[in-house]
Amino acid sequence: MYAQMITSEATPDDPDKLAAFQARIDAGERIEPKDWMPAGYRKTLIRQIGQHAHSEIVGQLPEGNWITRAPSLERKAILLAKVQDEAGHGLYLYCAAETLGVSRDELTEMLLDGRMKYSSIFSYPTLTWADMGAVGWLVDGAAIMNQVPLQRTSFGPYARAMVRICKEESFHQRQGFDIMMKMANGTPEQHRMAQDALNRFWYPSLMMFGPSDSESVHSEQSMRWKIKMNSNDELRQKFVDQTVPQAEYLGLTVPDSDLTWNDNKGGYDFTGPDWSEFFEVLKGNGPCGTERIEARQKAWDDGAWVREARLAHAAKKRAAKVAAE
């Protein structure tokens, strides 16, 4: 998802405290920043919320790519508002991570030097305007699938950030589908662009949920701690079942010749993505991997004087106030 392949670690904590902690989680209580928590819970959450935040921030890049080239002023204003929301989501999440004792600067540095990741999906390029439709429809659709259950996650600040985010996310998916409807029902050329966007974003969207449960070694601990609410395969299945009829509605074809409805399981049988590609992309070797981190590095470097200037100005105002008193 926006957080993929999160290593979850058990830590040597006092067994009595651990048992009491697990009992709180099992009882559906929320853990708050100042409560006692196992070191592994804290570390895993910093990694997960941090990666989620980085994904929101890096996720602005593929869409920001089309702001100046949106086909109408209205589409441009809408896309701008959506990208602005992604920045907001990143900020909610960074703040939630910071309640666990990591600083914003540390999180940013870990993204830039590769110690922390962002979702594999944002390493793919956005080549045509139809991609704005596909991203909203598929990528935000997949994100919603994961984020809705996370509203009940055990860590209070993360759960509350998710509530805000989910409220705003619905606009994102609907604006994407709205673009897809326009394109799919437009000229033959527009229809072809819509199909091409679906072709390119289908498998990367399936990758968003992370590797199959059988290979997802860290899921069990995270699920016990309720920082992962559903298995990767479960969410991926749900996404396919929801999305295939939407593609049919659009008159588009999901690029999977083995896609068939399975009556027994009440869901579709489908081809999984190429996991070797996923691991390469996650390592930073995706089509736009280098470009994305370069863009973030540039924003960080170019913004340095603004961060310094604000602090200098605040210090000056403080000094003036003291002098006046």
């Binding site: 209205e74 204003a77 809408i78 508002a81 929301d85 659709g141 705003e168 619905s170 606009f171 998916q173 609907r174 604006q175 589908f177 709205d178 929801q242 009829p245 939407q246 509605y249």
Partner: peptide, 19 residues
Amino acid sequence: DKVYRHPTFFDIPDDVGAM
């Protein structure tokens, strides 16, 4: 004047399911 920030701004047919 930014009503499009609300999901209801977009007309999505009911057949498409919850979105």
